[in-house]
Design a protein around this nucleic acid. Structure first.
Length: 206
DNA sequence: TGTAAGATCCTA
DNA sequence: AGGATCTTACAT
C-alpha cells in the first residue's frame, strides 16, 4: 500500500554514478524545495544536462577552485552558482568522491504554484520553471544553498519516479529525447542533454 | 590589479 | 540582435 510506504528519496549511493548515467535517470524524478517558514514546492524534472571530467564545458575541467569545489566532493550535494551576474543554476553532484561531475537541472514541470509566489495566470505556470535560471528563481534557490545535502528536511531533496511515470516510460507512452547541450562554446557536440519529449515545460526543443 | 567571458533570459 | 549585471578565472 503506497500510503504505508516509508517516505522515499534519492540517496547519495544512487547518485554515485557518472553524470551521463544519472542525468537521464533524473527525468521524471521530483525536486522538492522546502522553506521552514514558507512551505514546500515540488516539480517534476523534465530536462537535464551532464557535466563530466575531461569535458571542456565542465566548470571543473581545469582545476579545483573555490567555486567548483563542491563538484569534487561526494555525490548527493548541490552545486549552485551565479551565471551572468543575474541568474542561479542548480546542479546535482554525482559520481565518486574526487571525480568532479554534476547534472544541471534545466527545467521543471510545476503542478502547482509554490506557496510563496503570488497568483499567476495558469498559462505562465507551465513555463515558470522552464530554464535553469527560471527554476531557481521560482524555487528561491541561490548560492546560499551551495554544498547543501539532498536529504528530506533540508532545503532541497529528490524523490524517485512515481510508479505511474515509470510504467508510462516502459509502455512508450512517454519518452526521453537525447541531444546536445545549450548555451556552450566548448563541448558543443556532446549529446549530454535529455528532456521529456513533447513536454511544454522544457526550456528548448531540438 | 585588470579584463574578458560566461551551463541565462527578456525585449525589440 | 542586444543588453542587464557581476563573479570568476586567468593574465599581467
Amino acid at each position: 500500500m503506497a500510503a504505508l510506504d516509508p517516505p522515499q528519496f534519492i540517496d547519495a549511493a544512487w547518485l554515485s554514478r557518472p553524470a551521463t548515467q544519472v542525468a537521464p535517470d533524473l527525468i521524471g524524478c521530483v525536486l522538492v524545495r522546502y522553506l521552514p517558514e514558507g512551505g514546500i514546492a515540488r516539480g517534476l524534472i523534465v530536462e537535464t544536462e551532464a557535466y563530466e571530467p575531461n569535458d571542456p564545458a565542465c566548470h571543473a575541467y581545469r582545476r579545483c577552485t573555490s567555486r567548483n569545489a563542491v563538484m569534487f566532493g561526494a555525490a548527493g550535494a548541490c552545486y549552485v552558482y551565479l551565471i551572468y551576474g543575474i541568474y542561479h543554476c542548480l546542479n546535482i553532484v554525482t559520481d565518486l568522491d574526487g571525480i568532479p561531475s554534476a547534472v544541471l537541472i534545466r527545467a521543471l514541470h510545476l503542478e502547482s504554484l509554490p506557496p510563496w509566489i503570488p497568483p499567476q495566470p495558469k498559462a505562465t505556470l507551465r513555463r515558470l520553471a522552464a530554464g535553469p535560471g527560471k527554476l531557481c528563481l521560482a524555487l528561491r534557490i541561490d548560492r546560499s544553498l551551495n554544498a547543501t545535502l539532498l536529504q528530506p528536511g533540508y532545503p532541497l531533496w529528490l524523490e524517485p519516479r512515481s510508479e505511474q511515470f515509470q510504467q508510462q516510460l516502459n509502455a512508450g507512452e512517454v519518452s526521453l529525447t537525447q541531444t546536445t547541450r545549450i548555451g556552450l562554446t566548448q563541448g558543443i557536440d556532446l549529446p549530454w542533454r535529455w528532456y521529456l519529449t513533447n513536454c511544454p515545460a522544457v526550456s528548448k526543443r531540438g
